[in-house]
Design a protein around this nucleic acid. Structure first.
Lengths: 213, 213
DNA sequence: ATAGTTTTCAAACGTATGTTTCAAACAGTT
DNA sequence: AACTGTTTGAAACATACGTTTGAAAACTAT
């Protein structure tokens, strides 16, 4: 079992793109299989169910991503020392890790980010549980490090600020293409991805570092 | 035509709550009509289609909301003067307007907010077009005012910061329930909605007011 | 080549959806 | 009370969905 990766990957490629474009409930297995050029039954044969396919879509990029992120973050912390951690730079590391993994697999960062946003926004409780169970450990050290660099505040305010950051990231990344197009047409300015990342890092770190309410 | 408001309102009440809870595609007309205690055919009789019902759900609170928001914002600007505008306060005005309209109609702010978030997050292009066509004019003055209160920066950075704010708002609103649930289970703290709003206002205004890159 | 396993394929299954139908019930007017 | 237009109701409609089936095809090894 788990032999032929060709059909499996074709399905995952198609599913990833369609889910990111349209959401989970709005994407049918028939759309996925016809885009992938495989038989309808292949999804249930290889994955078991639509739910399992959704989870597999996330695992495929979240597993390498979390490894890359952990390594890049450790490298940065060792480089500057635990007392000189800059929030904006940590955010940049996060974005950069996503980009590295995307490029390595010849895929789009925007799609990954949009999927992450959907994982929050859509009513797929199985997905949230799955992600929490498999990946929450990777991000706990990140949270802990981040907290040490932030001003003293109540746990609840800290909780919300973290999710504001995640929200800003997910939303921005997920619509980065259309936003870049808007910038180009409204301002006739060519907006570089890495410039946007530094604006973003500046924005969220200012929000995080704001004096507690 | 457009006579009996009783059935119409019962449908809108049920639809609003279910849409906010589960999303649009995940909510069937049968769920709505059975919750509303009316016949299934009533939706198509009174609204014409499910799409039209979704749009009507938004219109019902967005029309009074945008009026209230415009008035409260003008009142605030006249009160402090155009040169003393505080971003965090403008965000608070936005939230307060939503709350006023909600209370006036004996309904939940959180539900409205979540609906707005879903309007961004869910793949309902007809909805986005509908909202843009009917309500974009109301928010243009808001943007203009906001810009005057921000530090000098390049148009492109301003462009990105505005969309970071929108992103944070939309994302937070669309996942406000699940985040509140997370806060409750992870921190065993009951997170009040209005506290969250003030954290949010603080966060985005700090991001907006950060020194230009 | 042959036997055994894995993968594909077309077709069907059962269920749920949005929508339509048309007769019955209701409301208001004369 | 009878006629009018409006609203409800139970049932059916057509379509789309996720999933299952069983036989053909494609592989893998002996």
């Amino acid at each position: 079992m788990m032999a032929n990766g060709n059909t499996v990957d074709k399905i995952l490629d198609a599913a990833q793109e369609l889910f990111a474009e349209r959401g989970f409930a709005e994407t049918s297995l028939r759309m996925i299989t016809s885009k992938a050029g495989v038989n309808l039954a292949a999804v249930n044969y290889h994955f078991g169910s639509k739910e399992a396919l959704i989870q597999a879509t996330f695992s495929r990029f979240l597993t390498p991503f979390s490894r890359e992120f952990r390594d890049q973050l450790n490298a940065y912390i060792q480089q500057v020392g635990e007392d000189n951690i800059d929030i904006a730079h940590m955010i940049a590391v996060l974005a950069s890790s996503a980009q590295v993994v995307a490029v390595r697999n010849d895929q789009s960062v925007a799609v990954f980010m949009r999927l992450m946003g959907l994982a929050y926004a859509q009513a797929q409780s199985h997905l949230r549980e799955y992600l929490k169970e498999h990946y929450s450990d990777v991000f706990k050290p990140f949270m802990r490090t981040m907290k040490t660099a932030c001003p003293e505040m109540t746990p609840i305010e800290w909780f919300w600020r973290i999710h504001f950051v995640l929200g800003t990231l997910a939303f921005t990344m997920s619509s980065v293409d259309s936003l870049q197009a808007m910038a180009a047409s409204d301002l006739s300015v060519d907006s570089q991805f890495k410039d946007m990342i530094s604006y973003l890092a500046k924005f969220v770190s200012a929000g995080l570092m704001a004096p507690a309410t």
